[in-house]
Every structure is written in C-alpha cells, then in structure tokens.
Amino acid sequence: MMKQPCVYILSSNNKQSLYIGVTSQLKQRVWQHKNKQVNGFSYRYNTINLVYYEIHNVMESAISREKQLKHWKRQWKRQWKNNLITEHNKEWVDLYDQL
C-alpha cells in the first residue's frame, strides 16, 4: 500500500462533532475509525464520515496543516471548519468510498 501524507476531517452523522487527523494511509485510517479500532475522541463522538481531506507531498507539511486547522480560537473554529468542508464537499457526503 502506497503511503501519501494527508490531513483529514471526520464528521458525526449529525455534523455536530468534527475530528481532525493526519495519516500517511488515509483509506486504512478511516476504515479504523469507521470500525471503532481507534479509541479516543472519534470513538466517543462517532466521527466516522470522511468529509474532507488534503493530500500533501511530505508528512511535515501535513502535520503543519493539521496544527493550523486545530489552532483556531474555539469561537471561530467551528464556523471556519464548516466553511472549509462545505467549500469542497457541499453536501457533506462521506468520501470514503471515493478513495
């Protein structure tokens, strides 16, 4: 399986919870989230729908972008992330099957 650094955002079914992560094997990592193989936030809040991802050339770039996405002040964070997702995935469909 080829490795490709990327940042991804998962959403709960009701779109109330978002999870931001970074990985080098997106399809495998999202499968783990969907099948409750990952303990923590995504497990507790059932964030299993891949609604956004960005591919990067190197892992350092992906990690930097993940930190940027997580850094926004709490009051602006939610709206900013919603806008980012909607810009690329208007209907918030699960992109997992398109990988």
Rank of each mutant, 00 (worst) to 15 (best):
34 K>N: 09
6 C>F: 01
81 K>H: 10
23 T>L: 05
15 K>P: 02
72 W>V: 15
74 R>G: 04
77 K>A: 07
92 W>H: 11
44 R>W: 14
93 V>E: 13
91 E>P: 02
23 T>G: 04
62 A>L: 07
2 M>P: 08
48 I>Q: 07
93 V>H: 12
69 L>R: 01
59 M>E: 10
39 N>E: 05
23 T>A: 03
46 N>P: 00
75 Q>S: 13
35 N>L: 03
24 S>P: 02
19 Y>K: 06
1 M>L: 12
2 M>Q: 12
18 L>S: 03
70 K>G: 12
28 Q>S: 05
64 S>V: 10
8 Y>Q: 01
85 I>M: 05
59 M>N: 03
86 T>V: 08
91 E>I: 14
88 H>S: 10
13 N>I: 15
61 S>K: 09
82 N>K: 07
62 A>R: 01
77 K>N: 10
6 C>H: 00
34 K>V: 04
89 N>I: 09
53 Y>W: 15
91 E>S: 06
77 K>F: 00
92 W>N: 06
95 L>Q: 13
22 V>S: 02
30 V>P: 00
7 V>G: 00
3 K>A: 13
89 N>F: 06
86 T>F: 04
24 S>Y: 09
15 K>I: 06
25 Q>R: 08
18 L>E: 03
61 S>P: 01
81 K>A: 07
90 K>D: 11
4 Q>L: 08
21 G>F: 00
26 L>C: 07
69 L>V: 14
97 D>H: 08
51 V>K: 00
46 N>C: 10
58 V>Q: 14
98 Q>R: 14
71 H>E: 14
40 G>F: 04
42 S>W: 00
32 Q>H: 15
81 K>S: 05
23 T>D: 02
31 W>L: 14
8 Y>C: 02
53 Y>I: 04
53 Y>K: 08
63 I>Y: 04
21 G>R: 00
48 I>G: 00
48 I>W: 01
22 V>C: 11
6 C>V: 05
20 I>A: 03
59 M>Q: 11
41 F>S: 13
43 Y>Q: 12
37 Q>R: 02
70 K>A: 10
94 D>N: 06
76 W>N: 13
38 V>A: 00
72 W>H: 04
63 I>D: 06
52 Y>H: 03
87 E>S: 09
24 S>Q: 10
81 K>P: 00
95 L>W: 01
31 W>K: 15
55 I>A: 08
81 K>V: 14
28 Q>A: 15
7 V>F: 01
26 L>F: 04
51 V>H: 03
32 Q>F: 13
54 E>I: 13
14 N>F: 04
51 V>Y: 01
38 V>R: 00
15 K>V: 13
72 W>Y: 11
24 S>G: 08
93 V>Y: 03
3 K>I: 11
66 E>N: 03
72 W>R: 06
97 D>P: 09
53 Y>G: 06
57 N>G: 09
21 G>M: 02
22 V>A: 12
5 P>L: 03
77 K>D: 05
31 W>R: 13
83 N>C: 12
67 K>E: 09
42 S>I: 02
23 T>R: 01
50 L>F: 15
2 M>I: 05
69 L>E: 04
62 A>P: 02
42 S>D: 12
53 Y>M: 08
61 S>D: 13
17 S>M: 12
90 K>L: 13
90 K>S: 14
92 W>V: 10
36 K>F: 10
70 K>C: 07
91 E>H: 09
91 E>F: 06
51 V>W: 02
29 R>F: 05
